[in-house]
């Protein structure tokens, strides 16, 4: 049992993180062409709405929720100190979880019932769908059966994750958690490890800089004003052709 715990909560996280980092950086640097969300809306443009939209908003909210609970545990606990606020947070999160599950199921059904989509679907897509559905179901299960996860995540799991990131893994608490929670943690690291090998990689390149970018972009191959000064016709920098 101890060996298993050691593997799943020490070895697996580190393997996943290393694979994620190295793989993503490698693909970003050398395989830019493969960085794509691989949208299939062009081949099927109606059913996608009922899958993609609920899934993406759900997963964004839940991902940020987990991230905030990890980064700011004290603030989350302070927020949860009043039962009403705790209820609001938990119910919202649960609704987003359901939205994510509905979206995923719709996406899976859409992908395997639309003949055209078969030709832009690979095995990894199925693996990712099933993993994400598993992960969402586990999450909802935990939220329903082990109430007030936002609070106990901050007290139990944040220290564990911190211990992973500070390279002093401490799994005494994690190894005592119920099986569903353990599966949820394992699922999370498996998904992280699969990011460089799947279309999930597109979440690393969200177009955030679009918000402050000017609309128009003009690019030169060279600093055009430096190229040539009409006053010094024989300057070192010769005029470039364009």
């Amino acid at each position: 049992m101890n060996a298993l715990n050691n593997f799943f909560f020490i070895a697996l996280p580190y393997m996943a993180l290393v694979i994620f980092l190295v793989g993503s950086i490698y693909r970003f640097t050398y395989k830019g062409f493969q960085f794509s969300s691989l949208s299939s809306q062009f081949l099927e443009g109606r059913k996608l709405f009922y899958g993609s939209v609920p899934f993406h908003w759900g997963v964004i909210f839940l991902f940020l929720g987990h991230l905030i609970a990890f980064l700011f545990p004290r603030e989350v606990l302070a927020w949860n100190s009043q039962p009403v606020r705790l209820m609001i947070l938990e119910i919202t999160a649960f609704i987003f979880g359901i939205s994510m599950l509905v979206g995923l199921v719709n996406l899976l059904v859409r992908r395997y019932t639309t003949p055209r989509l078969k030709f832009v679907t690979n095995k990894m897509d199925l693996v990712i769908y099933l993993l994400l559905i598993f992960q969402t179901v586990m999450g909802l299960w935990i939220a329903y059966n082990f109430r007030w996860g936002s609070s106990w995540f901050s007290t139990l799991l944040t220290p564990y994750l911190n211990s992973i990131f500070t390279l002093q893994p401490d799994i005494t608490v994690v190894s005592l958690l119920p099986l569903t929670v353990k599966l949820h943690i394992i699922g999370a690291f498996v998904i992280i490890g699969l990011i460089p090998f799947s279309r999930l990689i597109h979440f690393l390149v969200p177009p955030i800089d679009y918000i402050w970018r000017p609309y128009q972009q003009v690019r030169w191959y060279w600093g055009r004003r430096k190229v040539r000064s009409p006053r010094t016709p024989w300057s070192v920098q010769r005029p470039k052709n364009n």
């Binding site: 390149v205 177009p207 800089d209 679009y210 970018r213 609309y215 128009q216 972009q217 003009v218 690019r219 030169w220 191959y221 055009r224 470039k240 364009n242």
Partner: peptide, 18 residues
């Protein structure tokens, strides 16, 4: 004033200056 350039969220589209 290309609309495609303005609409590209990832900034992949550009107009060559030359």
């Amino acid at each position: 004033n290309p609309a495609c350039v303005g609409a590209c969220p990832s900034g992949a589209i550009y107009k060559r200056g030359e």
